[in-house]
Design a protein around this nucleic acid. Sequence first.
DNA 1: CGCCAGGCCGTGT
DNA 2: ACACGGCATGGC
Length: 240
Amino acid sequence: MMRRNPTDPARRLRRMHDQLARVYGPQHWWPAETPFEVIVGAYLTQNTSWKAVELSLANLRSGGALNLEGLRSLSVDQLQDLIRPSGFHSRKAPAIKAFIAMLDAEFGGSIQRLGKASTSPLRDRLLALPGVGSETADAILLYALGHPVPVADEYLRRIALRHGLVNPVPAKNRKSYEALVQLTRNAFSSDPEANHAQLFNEFHALTVAVGKAFCRKTPDCAHCPLASDLRPSTKTERKA
DNA sequence: CGCCAGGCCGTGT
DNA sequence: ACACGGCATGGC
């Protein structure tokens, strides 16, 4: 019989993006005023709700520390104190400081210069920093520096898994992250003329929007706008 | 009160 | 290579 959805995971993911774009509209990500704020936010939001990140960002802003110069003038201990609300401060504060040290030592303290480096070596350089893994590196590349790289996160993993777009590989696996990135690239590769940075930007933002609402650890697929794209493989899932 | 959040890292197998 | 626990705080 004729299936109304394509079977190719990349095409299915593209359809899901289109559906989310219709439902949610433009997301205007990343929620920040400057590229530097994006970078700080990317560190702070690691395994942390954005609401908690906002508390830390407010602390930094009121202390005049939400910019390069301001953060340079803070000690690690002072920084720890300001970002305490978003957790893991003993790791995140030195990590942010290490980023600034790298920026100053290797790029003349210029984020613009940093962004002019070519994507692949730059990604490797970011990954070599403490506290920067795949997702943080890609978030910085895409949202702070405008490079056309997909960002995969826990929500995308859950969604892709639930929709059968990837093999049931466990989380926190480097290969599973790369598989999600590849899948996202494939989803938008049909039009090479398109602005992929913009597409990846919007797609990840939409993924987080739908993920926050319906794909937490206890998912609510019944009301999810992607529910019609689900392909239950079991009868029990069909019921849910 | 207990679980969870827009990950990452060190350690043990 | 991969699984697993620690990291810390605020929301709900």
